[in-house]
């Protein structure tokens, strides 16, 4: 077998120091994606630095009324946390919409952000993929791309980011904190993932060797009034073909505040800022919701097999905002 080194880190500076600048090393969280990719030969790290034992497993309120979520908090614990459920229900719903119970018990917040696309060309080392082997080509554009991106993609890559959690985080202005040998740093989630362009293999703006230590969610009253809805090709245990996180604050029939982010449409969780701008200050009705979705989707460039994603996202936006307005974050749909 391909041998690799394994070390368990006990504190953050130690983890960063052990990994050092080694480009052949990877941090290991729950391993629910990295280990699969190692088995498939997609990832071939020389060393794994296990960060699961780091003291980053807490969800804590921040002074300004937000939440700080440690990088090694498991998906299960995140979704079950009462403050997450109260302040950011869409986040809890998004996490529970992902994977299976067993995987959620293992998977971590930090790993979730760094998981790789499930594009079938990326995971098949017998085929080209610009993300896996830069410059080898993207066969998905001419081949199978039913679950490909419709926003922000390029001819070099049409893969989508698979995270559900990330979609809710994007809606709520999450900030990713990290540690490097040079000290701590932070990145707004909006800046965390790099544009695809002609470098789809460069996925995040994290500095080399950086270890994600957590995610901070700023206070957002509107977030308490939020929902997540995921559509997939079976009822469970599948990645989204389209998903929406939405938050809505309506007073006297007028939208005071709104948040929208889309999943499975781009190489990253897609914050729908154009849609939000269209909503805020306008009427809280289905026509306005549809117009807002259209404002965001005007930039969509679907390929031959994924034109359906445009009406899908549009319908989801209308449905979710309508449900929020009529039933709140939970209840009948």
């Amino acid at each position: 077998m391909r041998e690799f080194g394994y070390e368990r880190a006990l504190d953050v500076p130690g983890a960063v120091a052990v990994l050092g600048g080694d480009p052949e090393a990877r941090y290991l969280g729950g391993g629910t994606n990295l280990v699969d990719l190692m088995k498939a030969g997609v990832e071939r790290p020389a060393r794994l630095v296990d960060v699961r034992e780091l003291p980053l497993d807490r969800v804590e309120p921040t002074a300004d009324g937000g939440l700080r979520i440690g990088a090694t908090v498991t998906n299960s614990d995140l979704a079950a946390h009462p403050e997450v459920r109260r302040r950011y229900p869409a986040l809890a719903q998004a996490v529970l919409a992902g994977a299976s119970g067993q995987l959620r018990n293992m998977a971590t917040v930090g790993g979730n952000l760094l998981q790789r696309t499930r594009c079938a060309y990326f995971t098949d080392i017998g085929k080209p993929c610009n993300k896996r082997v830069p410059g080898s080509g993207c066969p998905a554009v001419a081949g199978e791309h039913r679950n490909g991106a419709i926003l922000g993609a390029s001819e070099h890559c049409v893969a989508v980011h698979p995270s559900d959690m990330g979609v809710a985080l994007a809606a709520f202005d999450a900030v990713v904190t990290y540690e490097t040998a040079a000290g701590p740093g932070m990145l707004a989630l909006a800046d965390f993932y790099r544009p695809v362009g002609d470098t789809p293999h460069l996925e995040t703006a994290l500095p080399a060797g950086a270890l994600i230590t957590g995610v901070t969610l700023p206070a957002a009253p509107v977030a308490a009034h939020s929902r997540y809805r995921k559509v997939r090709e079976r009822a469970s245990y599948a990645f989204a073909v389209g998903s929406v996180a939405a938050a809505l604050d309506v007073q006297d029939g007028v939208v005071r505040d709104a948040r929208l982010a889309f999943g499975a449409v781009a190489s990253r969780p897609w914050r729908a800022t154009a849609a939000e701008r269209a909503l805020i200050g306008g009427p809280a009705d289905a026509d306005a919701y549809a117009a807002a979705a259209d404002a965001e989707l005007a930039a969509a460039q679907p390929l031959s097999q994924n034109t359906y994603k445009v009406p899908l996202i549009r319908n989801l936006v209308v449905a979710l905002l309508t449900e929020l307005e009529q039933h709140g974050p939970e209840g009948a749909r």
Binding site: A120, T123, G126
Partner: peptide, 21 residues
């Protein structure tokens, strides 16, 4: 994939069958 003549997503992540739900 007609270009390669081989399957795309030939595993249980790609080939969906009914889940319990």
């Amino acid at each position: 994939d007609e270009t390669f003549g081989s399957h795309v997503g030939a595993d249980f992540a790609g080939y969906h069958f009914a889940a319990n739900a």
